[in-house]
Structures are given as structure tokens and as C-alpha cells.
């Protein structure tokens, strides 16, 4: 595939998640303005930070008059899952120039990560992954900034925008990505364990339960995978 085609395919494969992100962007813009941020700051955060859930948490904390260090620490903790994402992408970027890696890092979101790992799962030998990745990333980014601007403009005209239950679109999109990826027993166990553990830790502060959950579920997955691998080795010796 040519780079341009890969770029467009990346954007196209992200389309369901872009649609899911539209209401989020609008709500963010409206919420930030409601919580006392200026128009330019609301838009600048989407332009320069580009981190959906961390942006929501930050503007919520701004409204509760939290101190700046508290807000920043929370943003950092909420973003730590992206460090796991980036670490898992390491084998695919080792030959790339740092500028391209930095661009990819800036566009690293739950959505683009989900779409890109899905693609890697289908075609591990794919050449030109950065093009695919950047197509997905730029589409998410452009949409996010535009929807923030829309939210700033519309904010005051839409009542109770935050009570509509808009995050359901994101949930069903993630389900559409995770479920087909579950093939081995270890993967199923990892997913089930993550679900249960996330519920048990849901009231931990600042999404720390999410990180704890990830560590527990990943450990379960690895242990079961190793056990399955050693079992097949034993049977093949017989």
C-alpha cells in the first residue's frame, strides 16, 4: 500500500471512534467554559495537550478550586496508562526518526492505540505503520479540536449536555475492538480479570485503580500464557 493510502486507511479505521469522540469534545468545550476557563485556554488545552479524560478531570478540578500542583499531579497519574501503551509500541518504532516518534507520542490516545494495535494484530508484518498511525492520530486530533471549538460556541445553548450519557459510544466502540481480539484462554482471563478488578477498585482516587487493575490483569495473562506454552511443550515431547 502507498503511504497516502495507508494514511487514509488509518483515518477510515478510526471513524467509529471519531464519531464516538464528537460528543465528548463538545461537552469538554462547554464544561470548561462553564467551569470558568477562558475561551482561549479551553481551546489551547485541546490544541496543545490533547488528552480526553485528563482534560475532563482537569477542568472538573479547576471548578472545585483545586491547587495547580494537585491538578497537574492528577493529570500525570491519569496519563500513566499511555506510558504502558507507548512501551508496548516500542518494537514498532525503533527504526524511526525521533521527530516522527514525538509526533506519534503527541497523538497517542486510547482510540488511536486501540485501532493501531488492532491492525498490528491482523497484520504484524505491516510496512509503513507510522503512516497508518498518523492517519488515525491526525483524524482524532482534528476532530477533537474542532469539536472543542463547537462546544465553546454551543455550550450555553445546550442544557444538561453532560447528562446525556454520551460515553456509551466510546464503550461500545472499545467492546468492538477488544472482543474480536480475545482468542487464547490467557487473553479471555486477562479481560475478565481486568473487568472484575476495575469494579473492585473503581472508587480509588484519580483512576489509580485503573493502573492497579492493568498490572493484575497483565500478570494473570502472562502466567496463563506461560503455563499454556509449557503444557504444549510437554505434550509435544511425548
Amino acid at each position: 500500500m502507498t503511504p497516502a493510502r495507508l494514511f487514509l486507511t488509518g483515518a477510515r479505521d478510526t471513524l467509529p471512534l471519531i464519531l464516538a469522540a464528537i460528543p465528548f469534545g463538545i461537552v469538554y468545550g462547554a464544561l470548561a467554559m462553564n467551569n470558568g476557563l477562558s475561551e482561549w485556554a479551553t481551546l489551547a488545552i485541546s490544541l496543545f495537550v490533547f488528552a480526553g479524560s485528563a482534560q475532563f478531570i482537569a477542568v472538573t478540578l479547576v471548578a472545585s478550586a483545586a491547587a495547580l500542583p494537585v491538578i497537574l499531579l492528577t493529570v500525570f497519574v491519569v496519563n500513566l496508562r499511555h506510558m504502558l501503551y507507548a512501551a508496548s509500541l516500542m518494537p514498532w518504532v525503533s527504526g524511526l526518526p525521533q521527530r516522527l516518534r514525538a509526533q506519534m507520542a503527541f497523538w497517542l490516545t486510547d482510540e488511536t492505540y486501540a485501532v493501531v494495535t488492532n491492525r498490528i494484530g491482523q497484520d504484524p508484518e505491516l510496512k509503513g505503520l507510522p503512516w497508518y498511525y498518523c492517519g488515525s492520530g491526525l483524524a482524532m486530533y482534528g476532530n477533537w479540536v474542532f469539536c472543542t471549538w463547537l462546544g465553546i460556541s454551543l455550550g450555553q445553548q445546550i442544557p444538561n449536555l453532560t447528562d446525556w450519557g454520551l460515553d456509551v459510544a466510546m464503550v461500545v466502540a472499545f467492546i468492538g475492538i477488544v472482543v474480536p481480539a480475545l482468542q487464547s484462554r490467557a487473553q479471555w482471563a486477562c479481560a475478565l480479570c481486568a473487568g472484575v478488578c476495575a469494579l473492585l477498585t473503581h472508587d480509588w482516587p484519580h483512576q489509580s485503580g485503573l493502573l492497579f487493575t492493568a498490572l493484575v490483569a497483565i500478570t494473570i495473562g502472562v502466567v496463563l500464557e506461560r503455563r499454556a506454552a509449557s503444557n504444549t511443550r510437554e505434550t509435544s515431547y511425548e
Binding site: 501503551y85 486510547d110 475492538i177
Partner: peptide, 9 residues
């Protein structure tokens, strides 16, 4: 296992 673990959570 990161995508499965985090997205499921």
C-alpha cells in the same frame, strides 16, 4: 496484554 487489560477495565 496492555490493550486488552486497560480497555477491558
Amino acid at each position: 496484554f496492555v490493550p486488552i487489560a486497560v480497555l477491558s477495565a
